[in-house]
């Protein structure tokens, strides 16, 4: 039986399962809507380090270490660490991996890295190549801000379409051991560019990529929007989510009550983040706290997790290029 279904989707016939997950959230995230779900909330977002880049590495280490602990495995049981982040040369993932005696597969999918690493990890476990793999990603507001935007102390206003990069890191352990949450299939997305060049409007840039992947997934798996308890996009934000709903409706799919977006849900209105949260850590910490916990409780049975990423760099932005975006989808389901 072929493991590829339709055009873009791969099915995991052996149903790899999620045996452990952990999220570390920053202070601002810890005051937001998910404060009761995060396993760890930081009190100091430098974590006692000298630089924000070092702090981000510590975030990764904390998430990976605790997720492994949570899963009941030991370091040596984990065959492969699949990880990526937003910084140049994915330094955080690479440098954090020094602390573990585990081989590393580095990925870059911008903010879509969580779904990308889950899909790759599940495929490797499904194929019988590994027993357990750890999938980790995250981001840090301050390190992302200084790489992509302006110095932190510069007194400028953020435009109303902007989003707030999440400080946080999430790690999921995927295994061939049985557990309640299964990874059923994954849809890798195409790179989509609808000609948006405004770096302060990532939601609008990424929404078409999300639409492309979600529709591809629904077609490949011959399912409807209503078949899912939750369709969750990564960090489109408020504006991006509205655009996605419009785009989907235009294509004949109606996203209803079962649709939501991690970026939109993350912060409370009083936190003044305009369109909500963004960053690789955004979907990672929501998935590894709220979503998995709700699935364990049985409140969500079938979830389509679609993390979106904008594949830009500061150089391409300055050279006036439009923003290519990607979205990968992973279908998760609860099986007793």
């Amino acid at each position: 039986m072929s493991k590829k279904i339709g055009k873009q989707t791969i099915a995991f016939r052996n149903k790899p399962s999620v045996i452990g997950f952990y999220s570390v959230a920053g202070m601002k995230e810890g005051e937001g809507n998910f404060k009761d779900y995060f396993q760890m909330i930081l009190e100091d977002d430098l974590l006692g380090e000298n630089t924000f880049e070092h702090a981000e590495r510590r975030l990764f280490e904390l998430a990976i270490k605790n997720a492994i602990k949570e899963s009941g495995c030991k370091d040596e049981d984990i065959g492969l660490l699949i990880s990526g982040d937003l910084l140049n040369q994915i330094v955080t993932a690479n440098y954090a991996a020094r602390s573990f005696n585990i081989p590393l597969l580095g990925l870059y999918g911008a903010c879509s890295t969580m779904a990308e690493s889950l899909a790759v990890g599940a495929a490797l476990v499904d194929g019988g190549h590994y027993n357990n793999v750890a999938c980790c990603t995250g981001s840090h507001f301050s390190s992302a801000e200084r790489q992509y935007r302006f110095p932190l102390e510069l007194g400028n206003q953020r435009p109303p379409t902007s989003q707030w990069t999440v400080t946080g890191s999430g790690c999921t352990i995927i295994s061939n051991k049985p557990s309640k949450i299964k990874v059923v299939n994954a849809t890798f997305g195409k790179v989509i560019d609808y000609g948006i060049s405004d770096v302060n409007n990532m939601g609008a840039a990424m929404a078409p990529a999300a639409m492309s992947t979600i529709i591809a997934h629904l077609k490949d798996t011959k399912t409807n929007v209503e078949d899912y308890d939750l369709i969750l996009t990564g960090d489109l934000g408020k504006l991006g989510s509205e655009i996605l709903m419009d785009l989907m409706e235009h294509e004949g799919y109606k996203l209803g009550q079962n649709y939501n977006d991690c970026g939109q849900m993350m912060f409370a209105d009083r936190q003044k983040t305009f369109q909500g949260a963004s960053g690789a850590g955004c979907s990672a910490i929501v998935l590894n706290s709220y979503v998995f916990q709700k699935m364990l409780k049985g409140e969500y049975k079938r979830v389509l997790f679609c993390a979106t990423g904008a594949l830009l760099s500061t150089t391409t932005v300055q050279q006036g290029d439009t923003i290519p975006c990607i979205c990968h989808a992973v279908e998760l389901s609860v099986e007793e």
Partner: peptide, 18 residues
């Protein structure tokens, strides 16, 4: 190109007027 132009126009109209 036409699709992108239309999309940009749509997004501009969609941006919330603060």
């Amino acid at each position: 190109e036409e699709r992108n132009k239309k999309y940009n126009e749509y997004v501009q109209a969609k941006i919330p007027k603060t």
